[in-house]
Design a binder for these strands. Structure first.
Lengths: 210, 210
DNA sequence: ACGCAAAAGTGCAGTGACTGCAATAATGGG
DNA sequence: CCCATTATTGCAGTCACTGCACTTTTGCGT
């Protein structure tokens, strides 16, 4: 019986196996992609290397790139959302910080994390895909922006607010792509990314004024 | 015999056929996509509807979505590039205007153009793909931005200028996605798009300042 | 007009991503 | 320890896409 000399009493054997397997597959996928380049790697190769059936691979990750990008982006943490809604900086900056923290919070595995950074640095298309996939949560995030917007400026036309939120989202995503790539090429320290974000906002301000 | 009561003496029969065929295929593809939704349409369906072999389809368009998105974005016109380099507005705005004009210059066929607009409005993923594909010219466009940048501020660190240009490009692309979608939903008049762009720039300025 | 070389269109066979379905193998609770 | 639930797998099939070899079309010189 699993009588809990262990540290994770809440999770059963099933869950632990699933996590261990996921890690193993991601690791194998990243290793292969770093060695041969993404599009010289087949799903079958990944499966053979990680001792899993192709069918199960797709059950886990859905697409070939799934194992390279990691699990579908998690919903932002409650507290992070609260920070965003309460923050007093430029809205784009605060949103980018939210994106960055959510992203960082989802990669606890150091080694996989580092490999992913290296892969992104050498395969920009994959990185763009990652950003696109984060954007798949676009609807939810736009709603968040809208909420903060209407809380601050209750006297705003609804349609105008919606357009505004869309624009905030798009600009944040565009800038985030550049920032995250730069950060990935550089130190990769968690704290640094917010510095990069702040610098980017400064630049944008200069960009949109003659 | 095609003895030239025609109007285009410079282009041979070959070229004219190619263009006519391209139009026919694009029209068929758009019709099918609008009716059934993009991912319920197969390449074989398009080919059957436009009386072309699948192999030829891929020779023409490369990917399934190729016929929906139209020919790969053309290089910006010389004069438009000149305008961009000489313009005195905020650099992001000028860049977006360049993108818009280049885009508009490439769609002479009214009907196909209108269908594409409708399709983009109802399939956002496709529209994002379009913007991504425009970005495939990213390297060239970034170089353009860099050129204008160094002409204006010769005393700028090279690495900093490169980062700056990347950011300009990303922000412009992000904003352009929103603007073009809004424009597509609205009037679709060529002149209107620059108004939208200008308004977007104003908004961005407000966005990045508390 | 005619024939020939280059270019374009096509058929075919194959690869690889991805899905639905049905059979099989853990797993965890009673 | 058995059984219902859930996860893993094999299999067959669809679809996007590619390389290669073959046929047709076109442009051109004679």
């Amino acid at each position: 019986m699993p009588t809990s000399t262990s540290d994770a009493p809440a999770t059963g054997l099933r869950e632990r196996n699933r996590i261990r397997r996921t890690r193993r597959v991601e690791h194998a996928a990243l290793t292969l992609a770093l060695e041969h380049g993404v599009d010289h790697v087949t799903v079958d190769m990944i499966c053979e290397a990680s001792d899993i059936s192709p069918r199960t691979y797709f059950n886990y990750f859905g697409t070939k790139e799934g194992a390279l990008l990691g699990q579908p982006a998690p919903d932002p943490d409650e507290s992070l959302v609260g920070d965003f809604l309460a923050a007093h900086g430029p809205i784009v900056e605060d949103l980018m910080v939210l994106m960055a923290r959510t992203f960082l919070a989802s990669s606890p595995d150091r080694e996989v994390f580092a490999m992913r950074r290296r892969l992104f640095a050498q395969e920009p298309e994959l990185h763009a895909l990652q950003v696109t996939r984060v954007a798949h949560k676009r609807q939810a995030t736009v709603a968040l922006v809208l909420r903060r917007l209407t809380e601050r400026c209750p006297d705003l036309d609804a349609a105008a607010a919606r357009d505004h939120a869309q624009l905030v989202m798009s600009v944040a995503m565009g800038a985030f792509l550049v920032v995250s790539l730069k950060w990935a090429e550089g130190s990769g320290e968690h704290s640094d990314i917010e510095t990069y974000i702040h610098a980017a906002i400064d630049q944008i301000r200069r960009i949109v004024t003659p």
